[in-house]
Design a protein around this nucleic acid. Sequence first.
DNA 1: GTCTTTTCTTGATTCAGATCAAGGAATGCA
DNA 2: TGCATTCCTTGATCTGAATCAAGAAAAGAC
Lengths: 243, 243
Amino acid sequence: MKNSDFVAVRCEECPIRHRAVCARCDGDELAILESMKTYKQYAAGETILWRGEPLDYVASLVHGVASLSKTMEDGRTQMVGLLLPSDFIGRPGRTEVEFDVVATTELTLCRFERKPFEKLVVETPHIAQRLMELALDELDAARDWMLLLGRKTAREKIATFIDMLAQRSLASGSANDLKLELPMTRDQIANYLGLTLETVSRQFNALKKEGVISLSGRKEIEVVDLLALRTATGDDSDGGMLS
Amino acid sequence: MKNSDFVAVRCEECPIRHRAVCARCDGDELAILESMKTYKQYAAGETILWRGEPLDYVASLVHGVASLSKTMEDGRTQMVGLLLPSDFIGRPGRTEVEFDVVATTELTLCRFERKPFEKLVVETPHIAQRLMELALDELDAARDWMLLLGRKTAREKIATFIDMLAQRSLASGSANDLKLELPMTRDQIANYLGLTLETVSRQFNALKKEGVISLSGRKEIEVVDLLALRTATGDDSDGGMLS
DNA sequence: GTCTTTTCTTGATTCAGATCAAGGAATGCA
DNA sequence: TGCATTCCTTGATCTGAATCAAGAAAAGAC
């Protein structure tokens, strides 16, 4: 499904119903959320929130990909998170964000006004618990990324990135095969991995030359040898164990 | 106060009473925690928890410093967090940790058995809310660290590290001056910053040579020129604004 | 369909920080 | 008080990835 095809759906039929902030909600709770929500679309490249901007809405990402990034005064930037469908933007008690939130692809948000939502959180433990889980998952992901940024080689970083996409593709079940679409440009991948775009390009092509992956077009990638890919990530020696 | 001097105290007199997981608790809630808690001491270098080990206790760090670290199969390690007094170990719904938790200095934990504590969390919104805040603070810190690991130079990393210690020293109020005690060896600092110990040593001595800091003994450091230090961190151009 | 822009690739060169190597200075222990 | 260990410094060299520099190949615009 292309994002532009997306139209508002009832919560029961929502693709992220069972993973988003509403995952634990029962029918009554869902009805309240249903009455509060509005959908909003963003084009690829559009900035959703600027760092320090006051947060009028919180939102779930319905589909598409967004990135969180920090920028230094001299222009160096580092992505500090990647938001995938079901991820949440906005935190209880926080009135602004610490980073820019940018639409990496075309995307759709399911938005709630912040103040009424926060009131709802206090009254609805199912939502508060789910928010906590989502925050802890992000914390785990951030820590894995710290290991990658601090200690992995360029090759390991690229392999880890591709493996992460492959994992998610397998998990979402939709994907039958190991053909993936890169949701970002080389430049954005470089910002995510703490590399330069040239190094990203070279490492992609090195893995291709070795027959680990194949590339066709700019954004199509196929994992040819998952075992070799896992080995190249530098992670656990059970690299061969397909999850 | 040296850690070894620490003796059990009543919660009302606890040094972390207003910042730890119990920060929002009222008298009755505090009484329950009081009845559940036990103190435990660890020596510097002792491992508190191994990665993957089941979590029988959760705990607040009363004083001392602990580190969270991840290790790759070939021995490369990266610290993914530093625990300071009032920080919390253990998360609702998590039965094990994803990293090793090691005592960096001698330290004291205020521990609670995990299961009864989790029951208490569900019944006590004051605790649940505070846990959420602590998790979000950690997430912010992790993201700042990602920028540091991915994009900062060795010099900027060292300056940021020293500045962080200085901030905390000023915040805790106790410290009158900008004399700090490094809580870690060069090797541990290197693991924290994604560097090698040689580079850490060189950068410390470079900043010393320039008159930004002064070093005496292994662990004593004094910030001589805070403005220059802030500039060297590479962060916001308002580096001079002493917060 | 042609022109323009953006994105990607590839090569040459440089450089920051890693690695290798050797001492020196604290610290702790007997 | 001496010995051993751990921790730190400093120098020499190496190297992985950054930077500099062209072009080529898509994608989009008109």
